[in-house]
Amino acid sequence: MAAPDLGDERWSQLLGRRVAHRVKQTAIRSGNILVKLSGSSALVDGYVEKALDRARVER
């Protein structure tokens, strides 16, 4: 499971045995900011870039 190509470091994994109950965890580090998201794969993939952008603006 590849993490999106964002930030300095990135990590992603799927948790769960059944397809319907899988949870995706993704963490992105950009400088001294760390954003970690957990949830359905589609939602995590859809919001990770927005979450990182928001964290950069609000620091």
Rank of each mutant, 00 (worst) to 15 (best):
residue 13 Q to A: 14
residue 12 S to M: 09
residue 58 E to G: 07
residue 19 V to N: 11
residue 15 L to K: 06
residue 31 G to F: 06
residue 1 M to W: 10
residue 53 D to F: 04
residue 51 A to T: 04
residue 13 Q to W: 06
residue 21 H to D: 07
residue 2 A to F: 14
residue 48 V to D: 06
residue 44 V to N: 05
residue 55 A to T: 10
residue 33 I to H: 11
residue 11 W to I: 07
residue 13 Q to H: 14
residue 47 Y to S: 09
residue 46 G to T: 08
residue 16 G to P: 02
residue 5 D to P: 10
residue 21 H to I: 03
residue 9 E to H: 15
residue 23 V to K: 02
residue 38 S to P: 00
residue 6 L to K: 07
residue 54 R to T: 06
residue 22 R to M: 07
residue 33 I to R: 09
residue 19 V to W: 09
residue 26 T to E: 00
residue 3 A to K: 08
residue 30 S to I: 05
residue 18 R to L: 00
residue 15 L to E: 06
residue 7 G to C: 08
residue 55 A to S: 13
residue 2 A to R: 15
residue 36 K to C: 05
residue 10 R to V: 12
residue 17 R to W: 03
residue 54 R to C: 04
residue 23 V to G: 04
residue 23 V to I: 06
residue 49 E to Q: 13
residue 47 Y to I: 13
residue 52 L to G: 01
residue 24 K to N: 05
residue 11 W to N: 11
residue 55 A to L: 05
residue 24 K to G: 02
residue 57 V to W: 05
residue 48 V to Y: 00
residue 58 E to K: 15
residue 18 R to I: 07
residue 54 R to F: 14
residue 44 V to E: 11
residue 33 I to W: 04
residue 26 T to P: 02
residue 40 S to K: 08
residue 55 A to E: 03
residue 48 V to I: 15
residue 13 Q to T: 15
residue 42 A to H: 11
residue 27 A to W: 01
residue 51 A to M: 06
residue 51 A to N: 00
residue 18 R to E: 08
residue 55 A to W: 08
residue 35 V to A: 03
residue 51 A to I: 01
residue 9 E to A: 14
residue 18 R to K: 01
residue 18 R to T: 10
residue 2 A to V: 08
residue 33 I to N: 01
residue 29 R to P: 03
residue 24 K to P: 02
residue 40 S to Y: 05
residue 3 A to F: 12
residue 38 S to K: 00
residue 26 T to F: 00
residue 4 P to K: 05
residue 32 N to G: 13
residue 58 E to H: 09
residue 43 L to W: 15
residue 19 V to P: 08
residue 53 D to Q: 08
residue 50 K to H: 14
residue 22 R to W: 03
residue 33 I to G: 01
